[in-house]
């Protein structure tokens, strides 16, 4: 009887072990997935690359980013900084063209739209919802 008892306990221990492991892994994957999709991380890169790309434009460009959640956007000299309340600010250093007027903006977005225009220079504008 005693041997059968040992076997049962071992099985239960193994099942318990896997259960705990499953919970740990579940939360680990969840945090990886969510950590990666932080808005600032995505937006600062996309905006920075767009500003770099605008310098290449032979023609006139008008761009709108809409549906932007709550954050603070600062552009100065050659960097873009995106900061939301809960996370550390994210920065992208773009490559400036000194023929253009320097970008110097500070916006607080509350679900508003960011307009960027490029003609003889590059302008940013926040359009209130």
């Amino acid at each position: 009887m005693h041997k059968k008892g040992d076997l049962l306990i071992e099985k239960q221990l193994i099942f318990a072990f896997y259960l705990i492991l499953a919970v740990v892994v579940y939360f680990m994957i969840g945090s990886i997935a969510s950590e990666r999709s932080y808005f600032e991380d995505y937006f600062v890169r996309d905006l920075g690359l767009t500003i770099d790309m605008l310098h290449n434009s032979p023609g006139k460009v008008s761009i709108e980013y809409h549906g932007l959640s709550n954050f603070n956007l600062v552009t100065k000299e050659n960097f873009v900084e995106v900061r939301s309340s809960k996370n550390i600010p994210k920065i992208y250093a773009f490559t400036r063209d000194k023929n253009y007027v320097q970008l110097d903006y500070n916006f607080n977005f509350l679900n508003d739209t960011l307009k960027i225009k490029k003609d003889k220079a590059i302008y940013l504008e926040m359009v209130k919802k």
């Binding site: 997935a33 999709s37 991380d41 995505y42 937006f43 690359l49 767009t50 790309m53 605008l54 434009s57």
Partner: peptide, 20 residues
């Protein structure tokens, strides 16, 4: 991840260069 924003980095810029 397809809906996740970080995977779309580069698509907006690709559209811009396509316009050029």
């Amino acid at each position: 991840d397809v809906e996740d924003k970080s995977s779309t980095i580069g698509l907006n810029q690709a559209e811009l260069v396509n316009a050029y």
